[in-house]
Amino acid sequence: MSTAAIAVDTTRPGVPLSRLVKVELRKMFNTRSGFWLMMSIAALATIATVIVLLIQVLNDNADVTYGIYSQAVGTPMAILLPVIAILSVTSEWTQRTGLITFTLAPNRAQIIWAKALSAIIVGLVSMVLAMAIGAVGYVVGTTIAGDTYDWDVTVRQFVFILIANVLGLLIGFMLGVLIRNSAAAIVGYFVYSLVIPGLLAVLAELWGWFKDVQPWIDFNYSSSKLFSDSVSGEEWAQIGTSGLIWLVIPLTLGVLAVMKSEVK
């Protein structure tokens, strides 16, 4: 019994990153759960806009600016976008598609990069769409109420808001890479965003020295400065230092674990 040798062409170029990003974007939309999760972004932004619009129209004393609309539409985005980033990673393990993915594209690091870029693209587009919905609602509400327009969100503030939401999205992505289980990663994100800030705030109240250190180690605290009108050089340094602790190092460990783990 003879076996035929299979020639493998090793000179062919690998799969380009741009193609992998397109595939990952398609995978985020072509499932029923993924599609409705994306639709929920537009739906929640619309609902939040309608609520603020009704408050503006029905309450003559309401001093409503565009900033209030942007806060209303930004709140559900801050919750949903990290979940989308988590699911973009963990689906490979929870739905057992990782073996196919890493067989067709063996470069696992490139797959992780493609997933991160696709999640960021979806996050940016979603935020722009949500802010646009809020702007339309503000124009309609202000026109009906006969108020004076107050576009109190500058271009710089808008860019800062985008950066803040992308950082929150990347925290979710990091947890997805590190834990690789949808439910556990989502719970981990809510612990990070809701429980840990409260604990660190208590420590800052109890220990005076920790209050000075908190901006340098609390990523939630330091990145919240991005929602203000300006960010100083020291605050950017605090964002970078705390981000190294909470984002860069854990993400690096997660990627290394993905590179070495057995995919089943």
Rank of each mutant, 00 (worst) to 15 (best):
L124A: 03
I84L: 14
L124W: 07
L25Y: 03
A42K: 12
L99Q: 04
W93Q: 05
I100P: 02
T31F: 00
S193C: 11
T252F: 11
D150R: 11
V213R: 14
L175E: 14
G14K: 11
A62H: 05
M259I: 13
V202C: 07
P215T: 08
L17W: 02
Y189T: 06
I55H: 01
L117F: 01
F173S: 08
V187G: 13
F227Q: 04
G141R: 05
S193K: 13
V187W: 05
G34R: 08
I47L: 14
V57R: 00
W246T: 01
A237I: 13
G141I: 02
L53V: 10
A78P: 06
T97V: 07
S242F: 09
P76M: 14
T3P: 00
Q71W: 10
P197S: 03
V159Y: 07
S118H: 01
A204P: 10
T241S: 14
T31N: 02
V15M: 15
V23F: 15
G98R: 01
L199G: 11
G233L: 06
V213M: 15
L44I: 08
K211W: 08
L20R: 02
S33W: 10
G74D: 13
F219K: 02
K115Y: 01
F102S: 04
D147R: 13
R156K: 11
I133R: 08
S40P: 15
R32H: 08
V248G: 04
G98P: 01
Y221V: 02
D60R: 15
I55D: 09
M127D: 10
S91D: 06
Y66E: 02
E235M: 10
I79P: 04
F160K: 09
S193Q: 15
K225P: 03
S70Y: 14
L253W: 04
L17Q: 03
V83G: 03
D150I: 11
Y138G: 08
T154H: 00
V177K: 07
R180Q: 06
V139T: 06
T241L: 15
L53P: 14
T75W: 13
V258H: 10
G134D: 05
A7E: 03
S223P: 03
I6Q: 03
G134E: 00
Y69L: 08
I79M: 11
I121N: 02
